[in-house]
């Protein structure tokens, strides 16, 4: 019996945003378009959509596949004259959903301390899963989302499957 289940999230919209995240017009436009408060450093803002803190000048908006193009265009329209980049990159990456003993499944693959005191629900981390770049965030104690480039999605899927096969060691109980 596997200790976690892994499935592809299916078509997911992803909009990358680059710009000065500290600037007031940028914060206002992002907040209004995403319908979320901007995430703090190293966090994911989770609501109807999700905003991921990718780097000091980059956020990623995760949304429905059909609305990604319109959201990117809306951001650019609101920030006319402000230096930024908003682009629908839904085809670049795949989102995987891990349910079950997610902390242990991920801890075996990434050089990340996944103890709840260090990596609480809502934390977001760009790192590597074994050999490839990936990122993940915890939606709850039993559900994590993993994003990786589409070209390596099968590899990551198999990694997670293998990691989920072993019995839970109870490291995070």
């Amino acid at each position: 019996m596997a200790e976690a289940t892994i499935r592809e999230a299916g078509p997911v919209g992803m909009v990358t945003f680059r710009g000065d995240l500290g600037a007031e017009p940028v914060q206002r436009a992002l907040g209004e378009v995403a319908g979320l408060d901007l995430p703090e450093r190293g966090r994911a803002a989770i609501g109807a959509r999700t905003l991921l803190w990718m780097s000091p000048d980059e956020l990623m908006l995760v949304c429905d596949r059909g609305e990604a193009g319109a959201l990117a265009a809306d951001l650019s329209a609101r920030l006319d004259g402000v230096h930024h980049l908003a682009l629908d990159i839904s085809d670049a990456r795949t989102v995987l959903v891990v349910e079950g003993a997610v902390r242990e499944v991920l801890a075996k693959l990434a050089p990340v301390d996944l103890h709840p005191s260090v990596f609480p629900v809502g934390a977001f981390r760009r790192t590597r899963l074994n050999q490839v770049a990936a990122a993940f965030w915890l939606v709850s104690e039993t559900e994590a989302r993993v994003i990786c480039f589409r070209s390596v999605a099968e590899y990551v899927r198999k990694l997670l499957d293998i990691s989920a096969e072993a019995p839970v060691a109870g490291l995070y109980d």
């Binding site: 000091p56 050089p111 790192t127 590597r128």
Partner: peptide, 12 residues
């Protein structure tokens, strides 16, 4: 110092 993440060298 940019993102505040503490990680081991394989991430760099």
């Amino acid at each position: 110092p940019c993102c505040g993440t503490t990680a081991e060298e394989t991430e760099f």
